[in-house]
């Protein structure tokens, strides 16, 4: 069992849990993910390693409630334990000195990008962070991101915090201004945000890494449920990724594969909410 050391709601519908997992904490690196099961009847869902503390033996996860599994997780409290907590999985981000790095974080994507930005900063890179959300109330870890960024741009859809607009706007401006200094771009967030970030950078030719959020089961290459297409080739997100070159990803297929269980997921969540309410 994997005990929850602390649990808090960062902003509405986005939660942070610190979890006791000493073995994983010893090994975890930026860019990797893990699989969590709330209870014995739970689904195995992938979440990114948002932080780790090797001494305390803990792993931090940040998740947004969108369906039954994440709702279940959100109801658990400090002192409770997850039924399964497996990892670290996937390839870690390639950390080296690229010169300047742009980190584009959309919504809950701030969590996975934070340890990457931190590691890249430590490796000597200049970090330009573009952090976006729908509105002011949904921006979290602003201070953490600021602490690892040389330049920190906040974007909200409604202009309630930072600049008004989409993350792709400053991305384009920076690339127009200083594109040749940018060694790599990391863009992590919802599919449309990653897709449009990749489309924005494509004409400039800067390598743009995205972290795909395919539906998974085992996370070890055993089922093939997490298949995606990159450069026309089939890849397994869990063992070949989760990071891929965003210019090569088949975004339509990724989106479709996320909708495979739409009806059942809705049924599952409705049932759950009805039970919880009762």
């Amino acid at each position: 069992m994997y005990e929850i050391v602390s649990m808090k709601e960062l902003v509405p519908d986005i939660f942070e849990a610190v979890v006791k997992a000493p073995e994983m904490a010893k090994k975890a690196k930026a860019g990797e993910f893990l699989i969590v099961m709330a209870d014995e009847k739970g689904e195995r869902i992938p979440l990114t390693v948002a932080d780790y503390d090797r001494e305390a033996g803990t792993i931090t996860i940040v998740f947004m409630t969108i369906g039954k599994s994440t709702y279940k997780l959100s109801k658990m409290k400090a002192g409770d334990s997850y039924y399964a907590f497996v990892g670290p999985l996937g390839h870690a981000s390639e950390i080296k000195d690229y010169g300047t790095v742009i980190c584009v974080a959309g919504g809950v994507g701030t969590a996975p990008i934070y340890p990457i930005a931190r590691a890249l900063k430590k490796a000597g890179n200049k970090i330009i962070t573009i952090q976006g959300a729908r509105n002011k109330d949904l921006i979290f870890w602003e201070d953490k991101m600021a602490s690892v960024s040389d330049e920190h741009i906040i974007m909200t859809d409604d202009g309630t915090h930072g600049r008004k607009g989409l993350v792709t706007e400053p991305l384009k401006e920076i690339l127009e201004r200083d594109g040749d200094k940018v060694g790599i771009i990391y863009a992590i967030g919802p599919i449309p945000m990653m897709k449009f970030s990749a489309l924005t950078s494509k004409p400039f030719g800067n390598l743009t890494m995205v972290s795909l959020n395919s539906i998974m089961v085992d996370g070890t290459g055993m089922c093939g449920g997490c298949r995606c297409e990159v450069k026309g080739e089939t890849k397994f997100t869990c063992v070949d990724g989760p990071e891929f070159d965003g210019h090569q990803v088949d975004w339509n297929l990724l989106g479709s594969r996320q909708r495979i269980y739409l009806d059942q997921e809705k049924e599952s969540l409705d049932n759950y909410k009805a039970e919880e309410g009762a």
């Binding site: 089961v217 085992d218 055993m222 089922c223 093939g224 449920g225 298949r227 995606c228 297409e229 089939t234 297929l253 479709s256 594969r257 909708r259 495979i260």
Partner: peptide
């Protein structure tokens, strides 16, 4: 890679 195509491993798991 279309949805609705499984490996037996995934289906049975």
């Amino acid at each position: 890679n279309y949805g609705g195509v499984y490996s037996a491993n995934e289906y049975l798991t």
